[in-house]
Structures are given as structure tokens and as C-alpha cells.
Amino acid sequence: MSTVLDTPAPTTPTTRRTAEARMPGFLADTWNVMVRELKPVFREPASVLFAMVQPLVFLGLFAPLLPEVENGSALQWFVPGIVAMTALMGASFTGANLTQEIVTGSHERLLVSPLSRSSLLVGRALKEVVPMLMQTAIILAVVTPFSFDLHPVGVLVGMALLSLFSIGVGALSFALALVSKDQEWLFWTVQQTLIFPVLLLAGVLLPLEGAPGWLSAASDLNPLTYVVEAERALFAGDVPVDTVAAGFLGAAIVAALGLLVGLRAMNRSA
């Protein structure tokens, strides 16, 4: 009578790689990708300051032209729009980094790594939150001495709202970069064609009260419109439930759409 010993099955390299890929999990993979993407930002913090040139120029040129208001400063209306503009532009530019990775081949190497493609996208999208927070802090530090009333609680809620919005825009930017692949001109053409109408239709620089019907209808279809309105209310220290809820709903729609489109493009990438 023979006895069968319960010996463990031999562990092959493929089995080890599969176990190692499953052990960290999606959250750990996403965290690792986000840290990887943030390293250049921390190594060169001047890049964040360089990205601040345009919003600071807008503040310097437009602020003196703002009309006087009876209660408070016109900056309370203008600054939240500039903060939202900074978040949109910063997140929409992030796909440019991916186009460079595609050209150099580093993106293909990441695709064959144990990291899941969903974590590659979500980690990269989350990375956009940190520069956005840093840039907002700089803007508030600049304008607060100039009759801008700072409401910390409202600002914190507003930053959570913009973080959700930035994740969606960042994911859409990465999807555009994946579709463009080696045609970098296509990425910049689409990005520049879309970003400024979105900004203007949201009333970032100019109020849209009294606008023609077609322009008002286009503004109502723009999710950024509701984000900007919520930011202005929060930065003023008010919390109107309907306005803030509409802002979070608009940001959530952008985030969901961005992640859905981005994941689909990531899974199709070779």
C-alpha cells in the first residue's frame, strides 16, 4: 500500500508573479502609481510655480477691471473662477506627459507590469489633485491681503469638489493621449479647441447674465458651470444646499465619464 505525501506543488515564476500581482491589491497599486507620478513634481517644485504664470497674469490684468460691489470685494466672485480655471487647465494638460511616455516606450513597459491597467489610470488621475491644491494655496496667499475674505471651511469643501472634477478631467486627458498615440499634434489640437469654450461657457471670466438664449442653453449643459457656481458660494462662506449639490453632481458626472472613457481606452491600448 503506497502512501501519497502531501507535498506542496512547485512554485513556478508565473505563479509567483501572479501572487505578487494580487497581494498588493488595487488600492496599493493605485497608491504606487500616484507616488510615481508625483515624484517629478516634488523633485521640481518650480514646475508648479511655472504653471501659475497664466492664472496670476489673469488676476493682475482682470482684477483692476472688476466693478465695485456694495458688499465685500469683487475678488470674491472672480477668484473662485480662476481657481476652477487652474484646475481645469492643469488636469487637461496631463495627457501630454503620457504622449511622451508612449514615444519613449515607458508606457508599454508599464502595461506589461503586474500593475492593473485600472490602477495605472486612477493613480495618474489622482495625481492631479496635489498640484491643484498647491496652486490654489498660492492663489489664496496672493489675493487674501487684497480685500479677499478667506473662509477656510468653504475653501476646504470647494477643494474636495475640485479634486473630484480634476480626477475626471485628468482621466479624459489620458484617454485623449491614448487615442492620439504618436500624433501629438492631435492631442494639443483637441485640447486647445475644447478648453476655452468650456471656460467661457462656465462664466469663469465674465458673467453670463443677459446672454443670448443659445449661449445660456450651452452654459446649462456645461458641468463646469455648476462647479464654478458652487465654488463661488463656498468661497464666500455660504453653503446653499442646492448650488453645492449641483456642483458635486456636475463634478461626479465628469469623474464617472472620465474614468469610464479612460479605462476603456487603457484596456484597448496595446
Rank of each mutant, 00 (worst) to 15 (best):
D6R: 12
P8T: 09
R16Y: 09
R16W: 11
E20I: 07
E20R: 14
G25W: 13
G25K: 09
L27G: 10
E37H: 12
L38N: 00
R43A: 13
P45G: 09
P45F: 05
A46N: 03
A51G: 13
M52N: 03
V53F: 10
G60N: 11
P64I: 10
L65S: 15
E68L: 08
V69I: 15
E70P: 02
N71V: 14
M85K: 06
N97P: 02
N97A: 13
L98V: 04
G105F: 09
V112D: 06
V122W: 00
G123H: 03
R124D: 00
R124Q: 09
E128N: 15
E128I: 05
V130R: 05
Q135T: 12
I139K: 12
I139V: 14
V142Q: 05
V143A: 00
F146S: 07
F148V: 09
D149G: 00
H151V: 09
P152Y: 04
G154I: 07
L156F: 14
V157R: 00
F165P: 00
S166E: 01
A171H: 04
L172T: 01
S173E: 05
F174P: 00
F187T: 02
T189P: 00
V198Y: 00
L200D: 08
V204D: 04
L206F: 12
D220R: 14
L221T: 04
P223Y: 06
L224Q: 01
T225K: 02
Y226M: 03
E231F: 06
G247K: 01
L249Y: 08
A251K: 04
V254G: 07
A256V: 15
V261G: 03
G262M: 03
L263H: 13
A265M: 14
R268A: 14
